[in-house]
Nucleic acid binder design. Structure first.
Length: 879
RNA sequence: GCGAGAGUGGCGGAACUGGCAGACGCGCGAGACUUAGGAUCUCGUGGGCAACCGUGGGGGUUCAAAUCCCCCCUCUCGCACCA
């Protein structure tokens, strides 16, 4: 037998065996409970990083554990393969995105396989393949039929230098990520998905998502941003009372008697109508143009100064019947509500600042409980809404609380036909058009005669042409490919043009989990019976950065596909685990910036210095691993040095999965050392598994004869306690760090046992312990577990062994150690047989030498006994 | 400002419904085996000479508080002029 632990050889060996035997292939099996375990699929950026190792190690433990517990486990992997970096590589390096992406996938697939992850690779999907994106197009057409996909003109981010539209993600602090030019807003025709039709359902599902982190739910709730209020029409007074009234949205209808002016968004078409023929027209237009030139992020920052201009027009407040001026204000959003607001300076801080600046009257309509507020001495708006204040100056509504007035005024508005109740959402429809090449072509044709015509289903996929120019300039590369653009109308056969925009890559990832259920189906994107078997995903694992975007889109798609009859699932992911980031300390030199560990000279004790200039290197904060901070660890190097088992074990042990993990080279050594200990432990008892397993009655007999504590009963207790602990830690909250700690304790105990007990005395208990150890270790470090399993004479694959069961009776100790407190402080410990009664224990506690000393001359006020856990004797000074 | 979360040894982190604070690992110290070891094995390791003191700070509830309640401080993340 080998005497040393050589991870490299054994890991490759088992990876080959698992692959040859197709160990992780899975099909629908109604005889077993199903379990769908999914980690977010990666973008094929080139190489895997430590964040990948962590998330896939977490998912793999869950998948392997559930498999061993008897579930049919779907655990698939694929590639989120469309996206901008591929196109950028084409522009910068002249590599075709298709080639670049495929090469990256091949490399990363090999890297993932080297980690020994239990994927069913036969289900691998790649979103840039026509057999995947065909179904994006198919779904687009279904959405189009149902009015869920539509085209409208809207403002988008435009880079004037690159002459292209940028996704929100490509705008960094208002500038183009590629050329640093300031991004402007531009009106363009864009395709949208009507996610807002599902706003209410997406919001109201928190009962179904109880296994999601609260903060993700909070972020989504925030993003959807539901506001309940009313719309009210304010008739125009001047200059043209015959024009339509101005409609506003408010959630503060209770303050409507305090509306002393109105504000309209600069972009609103109302502006031109209001200023037509007015003397202020030129000044207003100048203001509107100035605001339009401003960076939108800057303009809409809360700190940004509130500015406006008077239109010259007036409206009538329908409640006070007074004439109020209409202003244009830079903080009013055209996209939200009606693009116009009623302004209540006394009870809205923005309106207060605006009114103060432009000397607009303030009218107090809610008085605080102290009655101390006055229109002439208001320092800030009074915004309290809980019900403490009372309405004043509000006609028949005066005297009511805010909540009462909200309800009553809303009802009044409806009765008097001044407006209607209204719910608004911050959630916008999802703009999916991208003026980019490397994405799914939108299956639409424009015909001069027939207009917008969907590509017939039979003509799908609309294939992305390969031969395209990549300049990074001008319109989308697709628009320049005549053979693609020029086509004929499916309806009339006349000449027509194809849509040259592609879909946002988030479309691809919005339903990939459904495709995994039937990855090769040629009739439909999702085979409903198969999806019915596997869906929903029982456990989803991924980064928090997708809390709103991907996770919200995926929920929307699931509901939309449900309404198309493709799945019965209401929600895609029953339980969500958002793993923490992988972080590491950083080092900085004042002249040379961030330093790699290899750029440091010196030592931890003497302090580190910059290799180039010798100046002290400042130890920076522990931050997320990133190339720019130079604090990355390459998983490939790690795996080559220590093996995949060590890489997995360390990332599982160093921190609970949802918390950030701080990288530590010494910690990796520790994980490696532990696996070495396991290896040597098993090697140290050659032949332990060579004989027959003990007969059924073996241990029962032992237990009966060994009433006293013995090394054997202690070992068995440790074994069963560990099985229980590891099982519960994985099952409950995925506490892998403490599960690994329990395995380490187990190994420590086994070393102690074999050093104290002569071999041959009773090998059965040791054999039971070692078998349990290897099975429990298998989800975490599957290669070494499998290898040792084989070396100890087993023929079957360890991954296919059932998870061990523990016997509660064996965990109970014959001898207990009971802490004894005096007045709540630990003073002594009692070692007693487990079957002692409360009286016996209390008597023993009181006669304990240390305790007698402490309570001498004092009165015992109380004796607390917690069953088998603790004794507390409460004493008072005797009088 | 709103929302979510976190503060425990030299470090990463344990502690189930209140019940022995510091599991496990790292680091450090001592010893063993060795020609040698930065390998391996064993033991020790919160602070203090002690009584005692110790879970961000201050109150409280309780026989008993890292854990429950009130007030405060610090940090991280997300959202942020949404009417």
């Amino acid at each position: 037998m080998e005497r040393t632990y050589l991870p490299d050889q054994i890991e490759q060996k088992w990876q080959r065996i698992w692959e040859e035997q197709q160990t992780f292939r899975v099909t629908e099996d109604t005889s077993r409970p199903k379990y769908y375990c999914l980690e977010m699929f990666p973008y094929p950026s080139g190489r895997i990083h430590m964040g990948h190792v962590r998330v896939y190690a977490i998912g793999d433990v869950i998948a392997r554990f559930k498999t061993m517990r008897g579930h049919a486990v779907l655990h698939p992997m694929g590639w989120d393969a469309f996206g901008l970096p591929a196109e950028n590589a084409a522009i910068e390096k002249g590599v075709h995105p298709d080639v670049w992406t495929r090469e990256n996938i091949a490399y990363m697939r090999q890297q993932l396989k080297r980690l020994g992850l239990s994927y069913d690779w036969s289900r691998e999907i790649t979103t840039c393949e026509p057999d995947y994106y065909k179904w994006n197009q198919w779904l687009f057409l279904k959405f189009f039929d149902k009015g869920l996909a539509y085209k409208k003109r809207s403002a988008v981010n435009w880079c004037p230098s690159c002459e292209t539209v940028l996704a929100n993600e490509q705008v960094e602090e208002g500038r183009c990520w590629r050329c640093d030019t300031a991004v402007v807003q531009k009106e363009l025709d864009q395709w949208f998905f009507r996610i807002t039709s599902y706003a209410e359902e997406l919001l109201g599902a928190s009962d179904q998502l109880s296994a999601w982190p609260a903060r993700v739910l909070a972020m989504q709730r925030n993003w959807i941003g539901k506001s309940v209020g009313v719309e009210v029409d304010f008739p125009l007074a001047e200059p043209a009372p015959e024009l339509p009234a101005i409609r506003i949205f408010t959630t503060r209808q209770d303050t409507i008697f305090g509306a002393t002016f109105m504000s309209v968004a600069p972009e609103s078409p109302l502006v031109e109508r209001l200023i037509a023929g007015q003397s202020q027209a030129a000044a207003v237009r100048e203001f509107v143009e100035r605001v339009a030139r401003q960076d939108k992020a800057v303009r809409l920052a809360k700190e940004h100064e509130k500015e406006g201009v008077f239109t010259g027009a007036y409206a009538i407040n329908p409640f006070t019947k007074t004439r109020i001026p209409i202003w244009i204000a830079n903080f009013v959003l055209y996209e939200y509500g009606t693009g116009a607001i009623m302004a209540v300076p006394a009870h809205d801080q923005r309106d207060f600042e605006f009114a103060t600046k432009y000397k607009i009257p303030i009218r107090l309509v809610i008085q605080n409980p102290e009655g101390s507020l006055g229109e002439d001495h208001l320092a800030a708006a009074y915004e309290e809404q809980e019900g403490a204040g009372r309405l004043v100056n509000s006609g028949q509504f005066s005297g009511r609380s805010v909540p009462e007035a909200k309800a009553d005024i809303a009802e009044f508005v409806e009765q008097q036909r001044l407006g209607r109740p209204m719910v608004n959402y911050r959630l916008r429809d999802w703009g999916v058009s991208r003026q980019r090449y490397w994405g799914t072509p939108i299956p639409i044709i424009y015909c001069k005669t027939c207009g917008t015509v969907p590509v017939p289903e039979a003509d799908l996929p609309v294939t992305l042409p390969k031969d395209v120019p990549f300049t990074g300039k001008g319109a989308s590369p697709l628009a320049q490919v005549t053979a693609f653009v020029e086509t004929s109308c499916p309806k009339c056969g006349g000449p027509a043009r194809r849509e040259t925009d592609t879909m946002d890559t988030f479309v691809d990832s919005s339903w990939y989990f459904l495709r995994y259920c039937s990855p090769h189906d040629e009739r439909l994107p999702v085979d409903p019976p198969k999806a019915d078997y596997w869906m929903p995903v029982d456990q989803y694992v991924g980064g928090i950065e997708h809390a709103v975007l991907h996770l919200l889109y995926a929920r929307f798609f699931t509901k939309a596909l449900r309404d198309l009859g493709l799945t019965k699932a209401n929600e895609p992911f029953t339980s969500l685990l958002t793993q923490g980031m992988v972080c590491k300390e950083t080092y900085r030199c004042e002249t040379h910036g961030w330093l790699f560990p290899t750029d440091l000279i010196g030592s931890e004790k003497e302090g580190w210095r910059c290799r180039q200039c010798g100046k002290p290197a400042e130890r920076g904060r522990v931050e997320k691993m990133s190339k720019s901070k130079k604090n990355i660890v390459d998983p490939e190097h790690l795996v080559n040095t220590y093996g995949a088992d060590t890489a997995r074990l360390f990332s599982l042990f160093a921190a609970p999965p949802e918390k950030d993990l701080e990288w530590s080279d010494a910690g990796v050594e520790g994980a490696y050392r532990f696996l070495g200990r396991v290896w040597r432990l098993v090697e140290s008892v050659p032949g332990i598994f060579s004989g027959k397993p003990p007969a059924d009655g073996h241990f029962r007999q032992q237990n009966e004869t060994a009433a006293e504590e013995s090394p054997i009963s202690e070992l068995r207790r440790l074994t069963h306690r560990t099985i229980k602990k590891v099982t519960e830690d994985i099952d409950r909250e995925f506490q892998f760090n403490t599960a690994v700690a329990a395995l380490m304790e187990f190994v420590n105990g086994l070393y102690k046992f074999s050093s104290e007990t002569k071999a041959g005395e009773d090998m059965a208990a040791l054999r039971e312990a070692l078998e349990a150890l290897l099975i429990l270790l298998a989800p975490f470090a599957p290669h070494i577990a499998e290898e040792l399993w084989e070396r100890t004479g087993h023929n079957e694959l360890l991954v296919q062994r059932p998870w061990p069961k523990y016997e509660e009776a064996l965990i109970k100790a014959n001898i207990l150690t009971i802490p004894i407190q005096v007045n709540g402080k630990l003073r002594s410990k009692l070692v007693i047989p487990a079957d002692w009664t409360k009286e016996q224990i209390l008597n023993a506690a009181l006669s304990d030498a240390k305790i007698t000393e402490l309570i001498k001359g004092k009165t015992i006020a109380k004796q607390i006994y917690i069953e088998k856990r603790l004794v507390n004797i409460v004493v008072e000074e005797s009088q």
